[in-house]
Design a protein around this nucleic acid. Sequence first.
DNA 1: TTGACAAATGAACATCTGTTCACGTATACT
DNA 2: AGTATACGTGAACAGATGTTCATTTGTCAA
Lengths: 227, 227
Amino acid sequence: MVKEYHKLSERQRNIIQFMLNYVETFGFPPSIREIGEATDIASTSVVNYNLNKLVEAGYLVRTNHVSRGLRLVEGVNIPGQRKRVQAQAQHLRLPLIGHIVASKPVQMPEDSGQHYDEDDLIDVPSAMLKGADPADTFALIVKGDSMIDAMIREGDIVIMRRQSTAQAGDMVAVWLTDNNETTLKYYYPEGERVRLQPAHPQMDAIYVKADTCQIRGKVLSVLRYVQ
Amino acid sequence: MVKEYHKLSERQRNIIQFMLNYVETFGFPPSIREIGEATDIASTSVVNYNLNKLVEAGYLVRTNHVSRGLRLVEGVNIPGQRKRVQAQAQHLRLPLIGHIVASKPVQMPEDSGQHYDEDDLIDVPSAMLKGADPADTFALIVKGDSMIDAMIREGDIVIMRRQSTAQAGDMVAVWLTDNNETTLKYYYPEGERVRLQPAHPQMDAIYVKADTCQIRGKVLSVLRYVQ
DNA sequence: TTGACAAATGAACATCTGTTCACGTATACT
DNA sequence: AGTATACGTGAACAGATGTTCATTTGTCAA
Protein backbone atom coordinates (compact mmCIF):
# COMPACT_ATOMS: atom_id res chain seq x y z
CA MET A 1 0.00 0.00 0.00
CA VAL A 2 1.27 3.41 -0.89
CA LYS A 3 1.90 5.90 1.85
CA GLU A 4 0.19 9.23 1.29
CA TYR A 5 2.37 11.84 -0.31
CA HIS A 6 1.82 14.46 2.37
CA LYS A 7 3.01 12.01 5.00
CA LEU A 8 6.45 11.86 3.47
CA SER A 9 9.13 14.04 5.00
CA GLU A 10 10.03 17.29 3.31
CA ARG A 11 13.32 15.83 2.16
CA GLN A 12 11.59 12.86 0.66
CA ARG A 13 9.18 15.07 -1.23
CA ASN A 14 12.10 17.17 -2.43
CA ILE A 15 13.82 14.07 -3.71
CA ILE A 16 10.76 13.04 -5.67
CA GLN A 17 10.30 16.47 -7.20
CA PHE A 18 13.97 16.67 -8.10
CA MET A 19 13.89 13.24 -9.68
CA LEU A 20 10.88 14.16 -11.78
CA ASN A 21 12.66 17.19 -13.13
CA TYR A 22 15.94 15.42 -13.61
CA VAL A 23 14.57 12.44 -15.48
CA GLU A 24 12.55 14.70 -17.71
CA THR A 25 15.58 16.82 -18.46
CA PHE A 26 18.24 14.20 -18.94
CA GLY A 27 16.40 11.00 -19.71
CA PHE A 28 18.15 9.05 -17.00
CA PRO A 29 17.95 9.12 -13.20
CA PRO A 30 20.28 11.15 -10.99
CA SER A 31 23.05 9.71 -8.87
CA ILE A 32 22.86 9.74 -5.10
CA ARG A 33 25.33 12.61 -4.91
CA GLU A 34 23.40 14.66 -7.43
CA ILE A 35 20.25 14.17 -5.38
CA GLY A 36 22.15 15.23 -2.28
CA GLU A 37 23.42 18.44 -3.88
CA ALA A 38 20.03 19.36 -5.25
CA THR A 39 18.18 18.77 -2.01
CA ASP A 40 20.81 20.11 0.39
CA ILE A 41 21.62 16.79 1.94
CA ALA A 42 25.22 16.71 3.03
CA SER A 43 25.80 12.98 3.19
CA THR A 44 25.26 10.30 0.60
CA SER A 45 24.16 7.95 3.32
CA VAL A 46 21.25 10.19 4.18
CA VAL A 47 20.17 10.27 0.59
CA ASN A 48 20.46 6.52 0.54
CA TYR A 49 18.45 6.31 3.74
CA ASN A 50 15.65 8.42 2.36
CA LEU A 51 15.65 6.60 -0.95
CA ASN A 52 15.04 3.39 0.92
CA LYS A 53 12.24 5.06 2.80
CA LEU A 54 10.70 6.04 -0.51
CA VAL A 55 10.94 2.45 -1.67
CA GLU A 56 9.10 1.34 1.46
CA ALA A 57 6.50 4.00 0.86
CA GLY A 58 5.94 2.70 -2.65
CA TYR A 59 7.23 5.66 -4.61
CA LEU A 60 10.47 4.25 -5.88
CA VAL A 61 12.05 1.09 -7.20
CA ARG A 62 15.78 0.58 -6.84
CA THR A 63 18.23 -1.73 -8.52
CA ASN A 64 21.02 -2.56 -6.15
CA HIS A 65 24.65 -1.84 -6.90
CA VAL A 66 23.76 -0.18 -10.16
CA SER A 67 24.60 3.43 -10.76
CA ARG A 68 21.50 5.52 -11.17
CA GLY A 69 19.48 2.40 -10.58
CA LEU A 70 16.40 4.35 -9.57
CA ARG A 71 12.98 4.62 -11.07
CA LEU A 72 10.00 6.53 -9.89
CA VAL A 73 6.86 4.49 -9.64
CA GLU A 74 4.22 6.16 -11.69
CA GLY A 75 0.62 5.58 -10.92
CA VAL A 76 1.25 7.05 -7.51
CA ASN A 77 -0.39 10.29 -6.68
CA ILE A 78 2.28 12.94 -6.76
CA PRO A 79 1.10 16.54 -6.83
CA GLY A 80 1.97 18.18 -10.11
CA GLN A 81 2.12 14.84 -11.89
CA ARG A 82 -1.53 13.95 -11.85
CA LYS A 83 -1.98 14.24 -15.57
CA ARG A 84 0.81 11.90 -16.35
CA VAL A 85 -0.27 9.47 -13.70
CA GLN A 86 -3.70 9.12 -15.14
CA ALA A 87 -2.41 8.81 -18.66
CA GLN A 88 -0.12 5.93 -17.90
CA ALA A 89 0.00 3.88 -14.76
CA GLN A 90 3.27 2.26 -13.87
CA HIS A 91 4.01 -1.34 -14.39
CA LEU A 92 7.16 -3.35 -14.68
CA ARG A 93 8.00 -6.06 -17.12
CA LEU A 94 9.39 -9.18 -15.57
CA PRO A 95 10.97 -12.11 -17.36
CA LEU A 96 8.66 -15.10 -17.45
CA ILE A 97 11.33 -17.71 -17.31
CA GLY A 98 9.31 -20.88 -17.42
CA HIS A 99 7.48 -23.30 -15.21
CA ILE A 100 7.71 -24.32 -11.63
CA VAL A 101 7.10 -27.99 -11.12
CA ALA A 102 7.41 -30.19 -8.07
CA SER A 103 9.87 -32.54 -9.69
CA LYS A 104 12.57 -30.06 -10.64
CA PRO A 105 14.51 -27.28 -8.93
CA VAL A 106 13.42 -23.80 -9.84
CA GLN A 107 15.31 -22.67 -12.89
CA MET A 108 16.99 -19.34 -12.29
CA PRO A 109 17.71 -16.61 -14.77
CA GLU A 110 21.41 -17.09 -15.60
CA ASP A 111 22.80 -13.96 -14.06
CA SER A 112 21.45 -10.59 -13.16
CA GLY A 113 18.62 -11.35 -15.55
CA GLN A 114 19.23 -10.19 -19.06
CA HIS A 115 15.92 -11.29 -20.49
CA TYR A 116 14.51 -9.01 -23.05
CA ASP A 117 12.76 -11.37 -25.36
CA GLU A 118 9.42 -9.83 -26.02
CA ASP A 119 7.47 -13.01 -25.57
CA ASP A 120 9.04 -13.77 -22.25
CA LEU A 121 8.00 -10.63 -20.45
CA ILE A 122 4.97 -10.22 -18.26
CA ASP A 123 3.44 -6.98 -17.06
CA VAL A 124 2.86 -6.59 -13.38
CA PRO A 125 1.95 -3.61 -11.23
CA SER A 126 5.05 -2.39 -9.49
CA ALA A 127 3.30 -2.88 -6.18
CA MET A 128 3.54 -6.63 -6.69
CA LEU A 129 7.29 -6.43 -6.25
CA LYS A 130 6.86 -4.99 -2.80
CA GLY A 131 10.03 -2.96 -3.15
CA ALA A 132 12.20 -5.79 -4.43
CA ASP A 133 14.88 -5.09 -6.97
CA PRO A 134 13.38 -5.74 -10.42
CA ALA A 135 16.69 -7.12 -11.63
CA ASP A 136 16.41 -9.98 -9.16
CA THR A 137 12.76 -10.63 -9.80
CA PHE A 138 11.09 -12.98 -12.23
CA ALA A 139 7.87 -14.86 -12.86
CA LEU A 140 7.06 -18.55 -13.12
CA ILE A 141 3.96 -20.41 -14.21
CA VAL A 142 2.88 -23.19 -11.90
CA LYS A 143 2.63 -26.56 -13.56
CA GLY A 144 0.66 -29.32 -11.94
CA ASP A 145 -1.36 -29.34 -8.76
CA SER A 146 1.50 -30.07 -6.40
CA MET A 147 1.53 -26.57 -4.93
CA ILE A 148 -2.01 -26.91 -3.76
CA ASP A 149 -1.04 -26.89 -0.12
CA ALA A 150 0.51 -23.50 -0.81
CA MET A 151 -2.92 -22.36 -1.99
CA ILE A 152 -1.52 -22.15 -5.49
CA ARG A 153 -3.13 -23.78 -8.50
CA GLU A 154 -1.96 -24.97 -11.85
CA GLY A 155 -1.65 -21.98 -14.13
CA ASP A 156 -1.02 -19.46 -11.39
CA ILE A 157 1.82 -17.05 -11.96
CA VAL A 158 4.26 -16.72 -9.11
CA ILE A 159 6.37 -13.60 -8.77
CA MET A 160 9.64 -14.40 -7.03
CA ARG A 161 12.87 -12.82 -6.07
CA ARG A 162 15.99 -14.88 -6.48
CA GLN A 163 17.70 -15.43 -3.14
CA SER A 164 19.39 -18.29 -1.34
CA THR A 165 18.63 -17.27 2.21
CA ALA A 166 15.41 -16.23 3.86
CA GLN A 167 14.01 -14.79 7.02
CA ALA A 168 11.60 -16.58 9.27
CA GLY A 169 8.10 -16.26 7.88
CA ASP A 170 9.08 -15.74 4.27
CA MET A 171 7.36 -17.87 1.71
CA VAL A 172 10.13 -19.49 -0.25
CA ALA A 173 10.66 -21.89 -3.08
CA VAL A 174 12.89 -24.65 -1.74
CA TRP A 175 14.50 -27.65 -3.32
CA LEU A 176 14.49 -30.63 -1.00
CA THR A 177 17.51 -32.69 -1.95
CA ASP A 178 16.31 -35.78 -0.09
CA ASN A 179 12.94 -35.81 -1.81
CA ASN A 180 14.03 -34.37 -5.16
CA GLU A 181 11.17 -31.97 -4.89
CA THR A 182 10.45 -28.28 -5.24
CA THR A 183 7.89 -26.87 -2.89
CA LEU A 184 6.54 -23.53 -1.77
CA LYS A 185 6.33 -23.12 1.97
CA TYR A 186 6.67 -20.64 4.74
CA TYR A 187 10.17 -20.84 6.11
CA TYR A 188 11.00 -21.11 9.78
CA PRO A 189 14.56 -22.06 10.74
CA GLU A 190 14.74 -23.96 14.01
CA GLY A 191 18.37 -24.67 14.76
CA GLU A 192 19.56 -27.75 12.89
CA ARG A 193 16.27 -28.27 11.16
CA VAL A 194 13.82 -26.17 9.25
CA ARG A 195 10.09 -26.05 9.66
CA LEU A 196 8.24 -25.67 6.38
CA GLN A 197 4.70 -24.52 6.91
CA PRO A 198 2.09 -24.84 4.17
CA ALA A 199 -0.01 -21.83 3.39
CA HIS A 200 -3.12 -23.90 3.84
CA PRO A 201 -4.01 -23.43 7.48
CA GLN A 202 -5.32 -26.97 7.91
CA MET A 203 -2.20 -28.69 6.71
CA ASP A 204 0.70 -29.73 8.87
CA ALA A 205 4.22 -28.43 8.71
CA ILE A 206 7.04 -30.65 7.56
CA TYR A 207 10.50 -30.66 9.06
CA VAL A 208 13.72 -31.13 7.16
CA LYS A 209 17.39 -30.93 8.00
CA ALA A 210 18.77 -27.51 7.16
CA ASP A 211 21.38 -28.94 4.79
CA THR A 212 18.83 -30.80 2.68
CA CYS A 213 16.83 -27.67 2.03
CA GLN A 214 18.03 -25.30 -0.67
CA ILE A 215 16.31 -21.96 -0.78
CA ARG A 216 15.93 -20.82 -4.36
CA GLY A 217 13.84 -17.70 -4.02
CA LYS A 218 11.22 -15.83 -2.12
CA VAL A 219 7.64 -15.63 -3.26
CA LEU A 220 6.51 -12.03 -3.50
CA SER A 221 3.08 -12.38 -4.98
CA VAL A 222 0.76 -14.56 -7.00
CA LEU A 223 -1.40 -13.81 -10.02
CA ARG A 224 -4.28 -15.98 -11.04
CA TYR A 225 -6.32 -15.70 -14.18
CA VAL A 226 -9.46 -17.62 -13.36
CA GLN A 227 -10.52 -20.06 -16.01
CA MET B 1 20.20 15.04 -40.56
CA VAL B 2 19.23 11.60 -39.34
CA LYS B 3 20.83 8.69 -41.08
CA GLU B 4 18.37 6.07 -42.27
CA TYR B 5 17.93 3.22 -39.86
CA HIS B 6 18.73 0.51 -42.37
CA LYS B 7 22.04 2.19 -43.14
CA LEU B 8 23.26 1.65 -39.63
CA SER B 9 25.51 -1.32 -39.02
CA GLU B 10 24.00 -4.43 -37.57
CA ARG B 11 25.74 -3.79 -34.27
CA GLN B 12 24.34 -0.30 -34.13
CA ARG B 13 20.84 -1.55 -34.78
CA ASN B 14 21.31 -4.18 -32.11
CA ILE B 15 22.39 -1.52 -29.67
CA ILE B 16 19.28 0.53 -30.36
CA GLN B 17 16.97 -2.43 -29.97
CA PHE B 18 18.67 -3.47 -26.78
CA MET B 19 18.40 0.00 -25.38
CA LEU B 20 14.70 0.13 -26.14
CA ASN B 21 14.10 -3.07 -24.26
CA TYR B 22 16.41 -2.18 -21.43
CA VAL B 23 14.98 1.23 -20.75
CA GLU B 24 11.50 -0.17 -20.87
CA THR B 25 12.38 -2.91 -18.45
CA PHE B 26 14.50 -1.03 -15.95
CA GLY B 27 13.59 2.61 -16.39
CA PHE B 28 17.18 3.74 -16.83
CA PRO B 29 19.73 3.28 -19.60
CA PRO B 30 22.26 0.44 -19.73
CA SER B 31 25.96 0.83 -19.08
CA ILE B 32 28.49 0.41 -21.84
CA ARG B 33 29.47 -2.99 -20.55
CA GLU B 34 25.88 -4.17 -20.38
CA ILE B 35 25.40 -3.13 -23.97
CA GLY B 36 28.52 -5.03 -24.89
CA GLU B 37 27.34 -8.21 -23.22
CA ALA B 38 23.92 -8.05 -24.78
CA THR B 39 25.15 -7.38 -28.29
CA ASP B 40 28.20 -9.64 -28.23
CA ILE B 41 30.75 -6.88 -28.36
CA ALA B 42 33.86 -7.86 -26.53
CA SER B 43 35.40 -4.49 -25.85
CA THR B 44 33.95 -1.46 -24.13
CA SER B 45 35.79 0.76 -26.54
CA VAL B 46 33.91 -0.73 -29.46
CA VAL B 47 30.62 -0.06 -27.76
CA ASN B 48 31.81 3.44 -27.10
CA TYR B 49 32.84 3.77 -30.72
CA ASN B 50 29.45 2.67 -31.97
CA LEU B 51 27.61 4.82 -29.49
CA ASN B 52 29.41 7.82 -30.88
CA LYS B 53 28.46 6.72 -34.36
CA LEU B 54 24.85 6.59 -33.25
CA VAL B 55 25.18 10.10 -31.90
CA GLU B 56 26.49 11.25 -35.27
CA ALA B 57 23.62 9.44 -36.96
CA GLY B 58 21.16 11.30 -34.80
CA TYR B 59 19.78 8.41 -32.81
CA LEU B 60 21.39 9.05 -29.48
CA VAL B 61 22.36 11.80 -27.09
CA ARG B 62 25.21 11.27 -24.66
CA THR B 63 26.19 13.04 -21.50
CA ASN B 64 29.93 12.81 -21.11
CA HIS B 65 31.55 11.27 -18.07
CA VAL B 66 28.23 10.31 -16.61
CA SER B 67 27.36 6.70 -15.97
CA ARG B 68 24.49 5.56 -18.12
CA GLY B 69 24.42 9.00 -19.65
CA LEU B 70 22.59 7.83 -22.72
CA ARG B 71 19.22 8.67 -24.12
CA LEU B 72 17.54 7.60 -27.27
CA VAL B 73 16.38 10.52 -29.35
CA GLU B 74 12.61 10.62 -29.40
CA GLY B 75 10.75 11.09 -32.62
CA VAL B 76 13.25 9.14 -34.68
CA ASN B 77 11.74 6.37 -36.72
CA ILE B 78 13.00 3.12 -35.32
CA PRO B 79 11.38 -0.07 -36.56
CA GLY B 80 9.87 -2.02 -33.72
CA GLN B 81 9.52 0.97 -31.47
CA ARG B 82 6.04 1.88 -32.51
CA LYS B 83 4.85 -1.66 -32.33
CA ARG B 84 6.32 -2.03 -28.90
CA VAL B 85 4.49 0.99 -27.64
CA GLN B 86 1.24 -0.33 -28.98
CA ALA B 87 1.88 -3.75 -27.57
CA GLN B 88 2.68 -2.27 -24.22
CA ALA B 89 0.02 -3.40 -21.84
CA GLN B 90 -2.07 -0.80 -20.14
CA HIS B 91 -2.80 -0.67 -16.53
CA LEU B 92 -6.17 0.13 -15.15
CA ARG B 93 -7.22 1.37 -11.78
CA LEU B 94 -10.13 -0.46 -10.33
CA PRO B 95 -12.20 0.59 -7.36
CA LEU B 96 -11.45 -1.47 -4.31
CA ILE B 97 -14.92 -1.42 -2.87
CA GLY B 98 -14.47 -3.38 0.30
CA HIS B 99 -14.38 -6.88 1.64
CA ILE B 100 -15.88 -10.14 0.63
CA VAL B 101 -16.96 -12.23 3.59
CA ALA B 102 -18.82 -15.45 3.82
CA SER B 103 -21.54 -14.02 6.01
CA LYS B 104 -22.72 -11.21 3.75
CA PRO B 105 -23.71 -10.79 0.12
CA VAL B 106 -21.16 -9.12 -2.07
CA GLN B 107 -21.64 -5.39 -1.94
CA MET B 108 -21.86 -3.89 -5.39
CA PRO B 109 -20.78 -0.46 -6.55
CA GLU B 110 -24.12 1.29 -7.02
CA ASP B 111 -23.55 2.41 -10.56
CA SER B 112 -20.77 2.99 -12.97
CA GLY B 113 -19.21 6.41 -13.31
CA GLN B 114 -18.67 7.05 -9.66
CA HIS B 115 -16.00 8.94 -7.86
CA TYR B 116 -13.69 6.87 -5.77
CA ASP B 117 -11.16 7.91 -3.23
CA GLU B 118 -7.59 7.64 -4.35
CA ASP B 119 -6.81 5.13 -1.64
CA ASP B 120 -9.57 2.87 -2.81
CA LEU B 121 -8.09 2.33 -6.22
CA ILE B 122 -5.91 -0.58 -7.11
CA ASP B 123 -3.55 -0.81 -10.04
CA VAL B 124 -3.94 -3.93 -12.17
CA PRO B 125 -2.62 -4.93 -15.57
CA SER B 126 -5.42 -4.71 -18.09
CA ALA B 127 -4.84 -8.36 -18.93
CA MET B 128 -6.39 -9.27 -15.60
CA LEU B 129 -9.74 -8.01 -16.80
CA LYS B 130 -9.71 -10.48 -19.63
CA GLY B 131 -11.58 -8.12 -21.87
CA ALA B 132 -14.28 -7.13 -19.41
CA ASP B 133 -15.58 -3.59 -19.39
CA PRO B 134 -13.65 -1.71 -16.70
CA ALA B 135 -16.82 0.15 -15.77
CA ASP B 136 -18.38 -3.11 -14.58
CA THR B 137 -15.28 -4.33 -12.88
CA PHE B 138 -14.12 -3.92 -9.31
CA ALA B 139 -11.91 -5.45 -6.67
CA LEU B 140 -12.62 -6.98 -3.27
CA ILE B 141 -10.37 -8.04 -0.44
CA VAL B 142 -11.09 -11.45 0.98
CA LYS B 143 -11.80 -11.49 4.68
CA GLY B 144 -11.56 -14.68 6.63
CA ASP B 145 -10.56 -18.12 5.52
CA SER B 146 -13.95 -19.19 4.29
CA MET B 147 -12.96 -19.07 0.64
CA ILE B 148 -10.24 -21.59 1.17
CA ASP B 149 -11.96 -24.23 -0.90
CA ALA B 150 -11.82 -21.74 -3.75
CA MET B 151 -8.04 -21.67 -3.32
CA ILE B 152 -8.35 -18.14 -2.06
CA ARG B 153 -6.85 -16.91 1.17
CA GLU B 154 -7.55 -14.14 3.56
CA GLY B 155 -6.07 -10.96 2.15
CA ASP B 156 -6.29 -12.02 -1.47
CA ILE B 157 -7.70 -9.46 -3.86
CA VAL B 158 -10.43 -10.72 -6.14
CA ILE B 159 -11.13 -8.96 -9.42
CA MET B 160 -14.77 -9.37 -10.40
CA ARG B 161 -17.25 -8.26 -12.97
CA ARG B 162 -20.72 -7.44 -11.83
CA GLN B 163 -23.25 -9.78 -13.42
CA SER B 164 -26.31 -11.74 -12.33
CA THR B 165 -26.10 -14.60 -14.76
CA ALA B 166 -23.26 -16.87 -15.65
CA GLN B 167 -22.21 -19.54 -18.06
CA ALA B 168 -21.32 -23.04 -17.12
CA GLY B 169 -17.76 -23.18 -15.86
CA ASP B 170 -17.55 -19.57 -14.75
CA MET B 171 -16.24 -18.93 -11.30
CA VAL B 172 -18.87 -16.82 -9.63
CA ALA B 173 -19.61 -15.14 -6.35
CA VAL B 174 -23.00 -16.43 -5.26
CA TRP B 175 -25.23 -15.62 -2.36
CA LEU B 176 -26.96 -18.69 -1.01
CA THR B 177 -30.22 -17.47 0.48
CA ASP B 178 -30.83 -20.68 2.39
CA ASN B 179 -27.43 -20.62 4.07
CA ASN B 180 -27.03 -16.84 4.30
CA GLU B 181 -23.59 -17.27 2.83
CA THR B 182 -21.43 -15.85 0.09
CA THR B 183 -19.18 -18.32 -1.64
CA LEU B 184 -16.91 -18.50 -4.66
CA LYS B 185 -17.47 -21.57 -6.80
CA TYR B 186 -17.46 -22.81 -10.35
CA TYR B 187 -20.97 -22.63 -11.68
CA TYR B 188 -22.71 -25.50 -13.47
CA PRO B 189 -26.46 -25.24 -13.98
CA GLU B 190 -28.12 -28.66 -14.05
CA GLY B 191 -31.82 -28.12 -14.71
CA GLU B 192 -33.64 -27.28 -11.48
CA ARG B 193 -30.54 -27.29 -9.39
CA VAL B 194 -27.07 -25.83 -9.62
CA ARG B 195 -23.83 -27.64 -9.05
CA LEU B 196 -21.24 -25.48 -7.32
CA GLN B 197 -17.77 -26.89 -7.70
CA PRO B 198 -14.93 -25.76 -5.45
CA ALA B 199 -11.66 -24.82 -7.09
CA HIS B 200 -9.84 -27.22 -4.84
CA PRO B 201 -9.76 -30.47 -6.80
CA GLN B 202 -10.08 -32.66 -3.73
CA MET B 203 -13.24 -31.05 -2.45
CA ASP B 204 -16.75 -32.10 -3.33
CA ALA B 205 -19.32 -30.07 -5.16
CA ILE B 206 -22.42 -28.83 -3.45
CA TYR B 207 -25.84 -28.70 -5.01
CA VAL B 208 -28.43 -26.00 -4.44
CA LYS B 209 -31.80 -25.17 -5.91
CA ALA B 210 -31.48 -22.63 -8.67
CA ASP B 211 -33.80 -20.15 -6.95
CA THR B 212 -31.78 -20.10 -3.74
CA CYS B 213 -28.61 -19.15 -5.56
CA GLN B 214 -28.06 -15.51 -6.51
CA ILE B 215 -25.19 -14.83 -8.84
CA ARG B 216 -23.54 -11.56 -7.90
CA GLY B 217 -20.54 -11.47 -10.16
CA LYS B 218 -17.95 -13.41 -12.05
CA VAL B 219 -14.42 -13.82 -10.76
CA LEU B 220 -11.94 -12.69 -13.38
CA SER B 221 -8.66 -12.98 -11.54
CA VAL B 222 -6.99 -13.06 -8.18
CA LEU B 223 -4.05 -11.13 -6.79
CA ARG B 224 -2.12 -12.22 -3.78
CA TYR B 225 0.55 -10.28 -1.97
CA VAL B 226 2.38 -12.94 -0.03
CA GLN B 227 3.03 -12.13 3.61
C1' DT C 1 51.10 -4.49 -53.65
C1' DT C 2 50.30 -0.38 -51.21
C1' DG C 3 48.00 3.11 -48.61
C1' DA C 4 44.01 4.90 -46.39
C1' DC C 5 40.31 4.32 -43.62
C1' DA C 6 36.74 2.07 -40.82
C1' DA C 7 36.10 -1.14 -37.31
C1' DA C 8 37.61 -3.97 -33.54
C1' DT C 9 40.68 -5.56 -29.62
C1' DG C 10 42.50 -5.65 -25.05
C1' DA C 11 44.23 -3.40 -21.37
C1' DA C 12 44.92 0.33 -18.25
C1' DC C 13 43.30 4.35 -15.79
C1' DA C 14 40.79 7.88 -13.24
C1' DT C 15 36.71 8.88 -11.52
C1' DC C 16 31.95 8.07 -10.44
C1' DT C 17 28.88 5.81 -7.52
C1' DG C 18 26.46 2.85 -4.23
C1' DT C 19 27.30 0.85 0.19
C1' DT C 20 28.65 0.52 4.85
C1' DC C 21 29.98 1.84 9.46
C1' DA C 22 30.83 4.29 13.69
C1' DC C 23 29.04 8.00 15.64
C1' DG C 24 26.05 12.25 16.69
C1' DT C 25 21.37 14.65 17.46
C1' DA C 26 16.57 15.10 18.46
C1' DT C 27 12.22 13.52 20.12
C1' DA C 28 9.02 10.76 22.55
C1' DC C 29 7.93 7.39 25.88
C1' DT C 30 8.67 4.55 30.24
C1' DA D 1 17.37 9.24 34.17
C1' DG D 2 17.17 5.68 30.79
C1' DT D 3 15.78 3.67 26.46
C1' DA D 4 14.20 3.28 21.97
C1' DT D 5 13.55 5.08 17.46
C1' DA D 6 14.03 8.03 13.62
C1' DC D 7 17.10 10.91 11.30
C1' DG D 8 21.50 12.87 10.13
C1' DT D 9 26.95 13.28 9.57
C1' DG D 10 31.33 12.21 7.74
C1' DA D 11 34.49 9.18 6.04
C1' DA D 12 36.16 5.18 3.87
C1' DC D 13 35.80 1.39 0.67
C1' DA D 14 34.90 -1.64 -3.25
C1' DG D 15 33.18 -2.00 -7.41
C1' DA D 16 31.02 0.08 -11.48
C1' DT D 17 31.80 2.90 -15.33
C1' DG D 18 33.36 6.04 -19.05
C1' DT D 19 37.57 7.18 -21.35
C1' DT D 20 41.86 6.62 -23.71
C1' DC D 21 45.49 4.45 -26.35
C1' DA D 22 48.56 1.37 -28.85
C1' DT D 23 47.77 -2.22 -31.78
C1' DT D 24 45.43 -5.32 -35.04
C1' DT D 25 42.15 -6.70 -38.66
C1' DG D 26 39.34 -6.06 -42.71
C1' DT D 27 37.93 -3.58 -46.85
C1' DC D 28 38.45 -1.03 -50.84
C1' DA D 29 40.48 1.85 -54.25
C1' DA D 30 44.68 3.44 -56.60
